[in-house]
């Protein structure tokens, strides 16, 4: 009993600390690492709730596979430092909204008048959340949601491949049209770059001063696009 309380408070502190780290850390890479810690603490809490299979799945699927995906994308896109707290009205209203939501949820919990909410839960047999028990429920009572979930995974995998495909995916559009509309010339296209630098009215408001803007570093890395041309996507006009 005492051990359970100690475990709960340690895991709760880890979960809250991880969550705050995700929101407050400036570098997305550290945010991902904080989320890994948060998920591991949460798996500990799931064990306390007698959900052994869910805890294992949380560790393997979430803290393992999904977070590896995040780390790869952060490494690919580059850790973009961003000012925390936001600016303007949203920066002030966001925490206020979160606090109001917390107060409302706490009122809902306290006022729910569920008789069992202060108990330690119903008496459950041993092996309540074991893989065998969950699998039995999943494949007997919830077969249709199970199949729907597998179909959803298939759709998501195909969608991700289509979105991130190199040649024929989203990049099929004319390459010097859409980036220009975003106030930016395609990299490695000298004519488009000069047009965007000289002829345009400049990048839209917020592009230049935003610390989340990746362009300056990339421009600094590649000062001369003529000498060091980017491999052109299909239909390049260089």
């Amino acid at each position: 009993m005492l051990l359970e309380q100690i475990l709960f408070f340690v895991a709760a502190a880890g979960a809250i600390g991880g969550a705050l780290g995700v929101v407050l850390l400036r570098n997305p890479f550290f945010s991902v690492l904080a989320l890994v810690g948060h998920l591991i603490s949460l798996a500990l809490l799931f064990l306390l709730l007698r959900a052994e299979f869910i805890a294992a799945a949380q560790l393997v699927v979430y803290a393992g596979a999904v977070m590896v995906l995040y780390v790869f994308v952060v490494a690919y896109v580059g850790g973009i430092e961003e000012a925390v707290g936001g600016e303007g009205a949203i920066g002030r209203l966001g925490p206020l909204f979160a606090g109001a939501l917390l107060i409302e949820l706490c009122i809902a919990i306290v006022g729910s008048a569920l008789p069992a909410i202060d108990s330690r839960g119903a008496h459950v047999p041993a092996g309540f959340g074991s893989p065998g028990a969950i699998g039995k429920v999943l494949l007997e009572r919830f077969l249709v949601p199970f199949e729907a979930a597998s179909f959803l995974l298939l759709v998501a995998a195909v969608g991700a491949v289509v979105l991130a495909r190199r040649r024929r995916g989203l990049e099929d559009a004319p390459d010097d049209e859409l980036p220009e509309r975003a106030g930016r010339a395609p990299l490695g296209d000298p004519s488009g770059r000069e047009r965007a630098d000289g002829g345009d009215e400049g990048p839209p408001a917020g592009t230049a001063e935003g610390p989340g803007d990746p362009t300056p570093e990339r421009d600094a890395e590649r000062p001369d696009p003529v000498r060091d041309p980017e491999p052109q996507p299909a239909g390049g006009t260089a």
Partner: peptide, 15 residues
């Protein structure tokens, strides 16, 4: 609530 506040205030889609 921490997550909701983060969704509102952060601007990086990864975060």
């Amino acid at each position: 609530c921490i997550g909701a506040g983060g969704v509102i205030t952060r601007r990086n889609p990864l975060v």
